[in-house]
Design a protein around this nucleic acid. Sequence first.
DNA 1: GTCCAGGGGTATC
DNA 2: GATACCCATGGA
Length: 265
Amino acid sequence: MNSIILNDFSLQHTLESGQFFRYTKDNDGYRIITKAQSFFIKQKDQQLLFDTNVDFVKELFSLNEDFNSIKNHLIKDKLISKAVNKYTGLRLMKQDPWECLIAFICSSASNIPKIKKNIDLLSQKFGKETQEKGFYYFPKQGKINDLKTIRACATGFRAEYIFNANQIVNNSFLNKLGKLSYEDAKKELMQLKGVGEKIADCVLLFAYGKQEAFPVDIWIKRVIEKHYLGHKASTKLIQQFGQKKFAPYAGYTQQYLYHWERLQN
DNA sequence: GTCCAGGGGTATC
DNA sequence: GATACCCATGGA
C-alpha cells in the first residue's frame, strides 16, 4: 500500500458526485478500474491509501493543482461557499477522455446507477479482463463495434450513438481536443451523434479540465433558477449565465452546485 | 417549442 | 408487486 497525506480532499465526495462511474464500494474503501489500472483506494482522515502508484493517483484526482486558490475564489459566492464548506474536499477528476465520452453518452436521460451498469456491461462485453477475474478494463476506442451487443448492455436509444462514436473517435481526435480552445473543442465533440452541449461540457470538464465548461442538467437548471435568476429560463441561457458568472472556475462551481442540489432533502 | 427514444431508480400505495 | 413518474439529453 502506498499513501499520501493531504488537505482539502474527500475521496467520497469526489467519487460520489456524479462525475465518475467506474468505482465500487469495497469494504472501507473503493475499487477503481480506469485507464488500464485496477486498484483499491481508501481514505483515513488526511491519509489516502492505495495499491497503485502515487503519480497515477495524483493525476487522476487532480492532486497537483493549487486547490487552495481555487477554493478562495469559490467561497466568494455565498451559496457556493456553503457547498464548499459542507462538501469540502470535492475535487474534479482528470478522467480518460474516451471512457468519459462514452459514459456521458450513456448518461442521456438516465441516472447514475444505470450509467454505471451500462459502463460495466460494455467493459464486460468488449474489454479485457483484469488480473482479478470478473473485472474488466474499459474497451479502447475501436473495440465497441457490435451494435447488437451494445444494445444488450441496456443502452437503449444511445446504442447507435456509442457505435458511431466508436467508429469516428481515435487517438488523434482525442489528442486534438486537448490542444483546441474550449469553444473549438466543444464544436468538435458536438459533431458526434448524441453529443450536445451538456455532454460536450461534461467531457471537456471531467477529462480535459476545461474550466469554461458549465454542464447544465435538470439539477443545475433548478438550482440556478431558484437561487440566482428567480425565474424559469432556457438551458442555453443558464449555460451562458453560469459560464460567465462563475468564471474562471465555472466548471468547479457547477460540480459543487450539482452535488449540493442533489443531496438536499 | 414539443415530443419521443431504453430502462432502471424511486416514491407511493 | 403494481404503477406512475423521473432522469448528468439530443434529435427530429
